[in-house]
Each structure stands twice: as C-alpha cells, then as structure tokens.
Design a protein around this nucleic acid. Structure first.
Lengths: 129, 129
DNA sequence: CTAACTGTACTAATACTCGCAGTACAGTTG
DNA sequence: CAACTGTACTGCGAGTATTAGTACAGTTAG
C-alpha cells in the first residue's frame, strides 16, 4: 500500500499519518471507504499493529477518519468544515510559513500559481457550495 | 524581551527561534543590529545560556543571523535570496499546508486576502528588485 | 597584558519519544 | 461460539532531545 522509510528520523506512525492524509485529501481513499485493519496493515508492512493503531488514532483525532469497534476504520465523509478549530490553527501555521516564504523571496505571483495548481488537483471532484 | 512558556511541549530554544525569526522578518530587529549576548538574554529569561546559544546556532544555520566570536550575534542583512534551498523546502511545506487548508474549506479568495495582508506588513519597507 | 565581555565546544544527567511485544478487553458479524 | 474488528494497558530497549555545567577561544577597553 505504501512505502515506509525505516531509517528516516520521521517516526513510522507519522509517515503513515502523512501518507494516509494525502490519500484522503486527494480522494484516492473515498469517503466512508474502509481502511485496512490495524492487524492486516501491520502484517503487510511488517510492523507492529500498535504502530498502525497510533497512526489511526492520530488521524481520528484530527478528524480524517472514524473508527468503530468491531467494524473497522473508515474515511470520514463529513469531517472538515465542522473542525473550524483546525482550520484556524492551520491558517495560523500558513501565515507563519507564508511570511517566511515571502521573506525568502517568494513572489505573490508565484504564490498564486501554487494555489491554482492545488485548486485544479483538489477541487477537481469536489462540491461547490 | 519575550515571554516563554516553560510548560509548553515546544522546546524553549525552538520558541526562541520562532520569536526571533518573527522579529527579524518583521524588521523589528534591523539588519546588522546586535542581538543580546547569550548570557545577557539567558539572565533576563532565567534560563541556561546554552539554550540561547542553541537557538542562535539554529538561526545562524538558517541564515537569519551571523555570529562572531568575541563580538556578538547580529541580524543577517544579506541572507535570504541566497538560500534558495530553503525557499524550496519552505514551499514544499507550504504546498502541503495549503492543500490541507483548502481541503478544510479555505476559499482561494480568503487565501488571497491573507497574502495581501502579509504583503503590506512585510513588503512595506523592502527592496523592489 | 589583564579584565570583562563576546561566542563556542564538550560532557553529562535527565526526560522523553518511538517502536515493539504481549496481553486483555470489547463490539460486530456469521 | 468463532473470527474478525478496534482499543487499552503494561513494560522494555534504544535512541534522541533538552537543558545544565564547565571550560575554552576571540575581541575590546584599560
């Protein structure tokens, strides 16, 4: 399913969170789609189920998935707009990073390009409220 | 000079790096201005000089300041445009964060606002190459 | 040169994180 | 009940992070 870098300084569970997040955001994993069970994925990746569970728990905390005891873990379809707290903190980070990037010489025009780039790759199959 | 949260999970030296970075980016600290010595600042904040030094070293590595043995640490005036490597990594982070923010419901229009906001607060006293 | 300042290097203790392992419990489904 | 699912808890071992303490090195003023 993915590749992990065991030698990386970035923890395994964190790599998992990142990759799964990407898959969810890009809608490779569809809403309500079931994720592999902690034991299955652990077997495939030959790592400890506990590590998977840690990643799943993190994703659930962040609102990307939901887990049901006895059934499995699934991609969260509602999510998102509800977690305005999260949006706020993400925007805070964003502002910090943006000011840094612009300080380093990123031109507004280049930034706009970046945004359009993302718009097309994400908004491609989304709802327009 | 600043306030530190000793109870935070974020290391002290990292808090220092963040705050100093902000001061430099916003030009509260002017180019070539001398920073407080590691011992002075450590005394003021009642923390270990080594912690300050670690923050300063990090800032130097990232190109925000330069230090001269026996003289002191100073805000780096050239900096920036030279570190294109850094710009690249910042942009990478930026893309990740942007896609997350947009997934969470951030509208492009709101993003543009953010940018204009930063433009005026940063570009206010800068060179237009 | 000396004294008092500056940054820097090294070591050490402590605390935390990460990943693994094992065990046990709880809900679902057939 | 059996076999699957997620979840909780303990402990262990290795590594890393954080801070502190101490000592060294360059600069400057007298």
């Amino acid at each position: 399913m993915f590749e992990l870098d065991m030698r990386s300084r970035q923890p395994i569970y964190e790599q998992l969170v990142d990759k799964l997040k990407e898959l969810i955001i890009s809608e490779v994993l569809k809403p309500d789609e079931q994720l592999p069970s902690v034991r299955t994925l652990a077997g495939q990746l030959t790592i400890n189920p506990n590590t998977i569970q840690k990643a799943y728990r993190e994703l659930e905390t962040q609102g990307y998935i939901y887990s049901v005891k006895g059934k499995g873990s699934f991609v969260n379809p509602i999510s998102l707009v509800e977690n305005s707290d999260k949006l706020v903190s993400v925007i805070k980070e964003l502002k910090k990073l943006l000011s840094e990037a612009m300080y380093l010489g990123l031109k507004p025009a280049e930034l706009i390009e970046l945004i359009h780039d993302l718009e097309s790759s994400i908004g491609g199959g989304k709802n327009d409220d």
